[in-house]
Amino acid sequence: MPIRYDKTRAVVEGHAAVEEAGDLAAWLIAGAARKVDLAACTGMHAAVLQCLMALTPHVTAAPQDETLARWLAPVLVLPEDPPPAKPARRRRKVAA
């Protein structure tokens, strides 16, 4: 499951495919304060990107993937300092 939904936070892991966009959009529209964690996201389909651009959720963590971060930085409001890489990865493994 590339997008995991907590109460108020969607955690995107790996590559978010086009099929995810519908659910993500619906989930984001359902609550104004909902947030997105992109730390473990390695890529996303343009449809997913559109959701983030159009619905402007608060992004709690920028992608560690530098290429993706470079593409997203101009169009999304990313947190200034992405969390350090290693702990984030460990956290993910524990979660999985």
């Binding site: 966009a21 519908g22 993500l24 959009a25 984001l28 529209i29 343009a46 449809a47 997913v48 990107l49 559109q50 959701c51 651009m53 159009a54 619905l55 593409w71 101009p74 169009v75």
Partner: peptide, 23 residues
């Protein structure tokens, strides 16, 4: 070099359709 933008201003959230490409 790259730049990415919406083609039209984004619709209101409730009218937003993620499957209509607006980039």
């Amino acid at each position: 070099w790259s730049e990415l933008a919406p083609r039209e201003p984004w619709a209101a959230p409730e009218a937003f359709d993620p499957y209509v490409c607006n980039l």
